[in-house]
Nucleic acid binder design. Sequence first.
DNA 1: AAAAAAC
Length: 492
Amino acid sequence: MASTEATPAQETPAQETPAAGTPAQEMPHETSAEKTHDPLEEAQVDGAGPPGNGAPLADTQFKVEVKLADLQADPNNPLFSVKSFEELQLSEELLKGIRHMNFRQPSKVQEKALPLLLMNPPTNMIAQSQSGTGKTAAFSLNILSRIDTSNPEPQALALAPSRELARQILGVITHMGQFMNGLTTTAVIPDPSRRGQPFNAQVLVGTPGTVQDMLRRRLINSKHIKILVLDEADNMLDQQGMGDQCTRVKQLLPRDLQIVLFSATFPPNVIAYAQRFAPSSNTLTLAHEELTIEGIKQLYIDIDKDHDKYATLLKFYGLMTQASSIIFVRTRRTAEELEKRMVAEGHKVAQLSGALEGPDRDRIIDQFRSGEAKVLITTNVLARGIDVESVTMVINYDVPTMANNIDADPETYLHRIGRTGRFGRVGVALTFVHNKTSWQQLHAIATYFKTEMYPIDTSDWDAVEETIQNIIKSSRAGKSTKEMTEMITGGR
DNA sequence: AAAAAAC
């Protein structure tokens, strides 16, 4: 299972998931405290609107713009940086939860973000850091440290772009807060079985549409909510539908609100909007050249014809099942078709897309987390945030593209391959290229991130197998990324 | 295209 041995010190603390054997679905629970007042009564719906007019915080806030590069250049910069969780003046219960998750030392992003997040008065924050570096734990810690467990009403709200990610985050928060007496948490995702029941937990994690609906129907008491977190914030604010929903949600919350935006990517076209959404934020940013994870070995395979993609995929099945693997496709239909074909040929694969019912989605992701299903075919629904440490291989069966299906989508590519190589582990990302267009798309992605991608030479299949097998084995053995690169390039 | 809400 999850080997905790031999990982470098700074990688251990950044774990985002509940410990092995603690599936996220066990976590959600809530109390049945009675609601006694009108949740919308005091919501500030004016002045907190979109562009240029977000909810202001106190004037006394300390605005800091920190560039990670600067801090790396000066590791002793005393400005808002902690080397241990103990320095943060957290409650003993919360520290106990942190230790229980095997966090020993803050990761780089946690080191910088936590002191800024925990400052009083609370200050908005926009934080960027690479996939798998502990963003979830950072904002979860901030949420938990600000919960008054003697007040049963909702106090913090976190939004995520998919049902699966919302459930995962809820699991982390619940796990981290397990020693806090009286803490209640619940998911706000579509659930027909709960009808018109109010959401009474102190920490709510949900998807934007459902949360907006529940606020509107006064099934969430917004009066005491003091923190709003958008995970995968660029995605949440970029897309028309979700951007509107998130803005409406913000408008339904109190004016005195700490707004926290986290993502690995903040493309230029959404950064300005993000700054208006979370005014006067402290910011941690990265240049896009700094976003690729060294431990993720990016390979591509040139396939003659579209028709041959499926046959090529099958060749990798044995490698995929060495550990866990995710196959990303562009459409729901392709996901279904691939699943059908592979299952018909006796392969064990699971498939998840937004076309499935909620309970089926829950069942399938849980099977994948537990290792019961080792190969998962999916769409971009799972491109972001999902943390399954056993994932050693990500296959881009279709190159990720924008809505026009012509231009490459570098952000989505980065998030997809970030499902492996979590917390310092190594992983393989393999992209299928089958014609000039798809080659150009991948080339555009490589250029955007200034990263190297290695072609796989299919004429020598044994060598291909050996190379990937070695990467997977090294992932378990905790080999350094330098050794890995030599392995792939033959030391060139 | 995918995702995210159903009154």
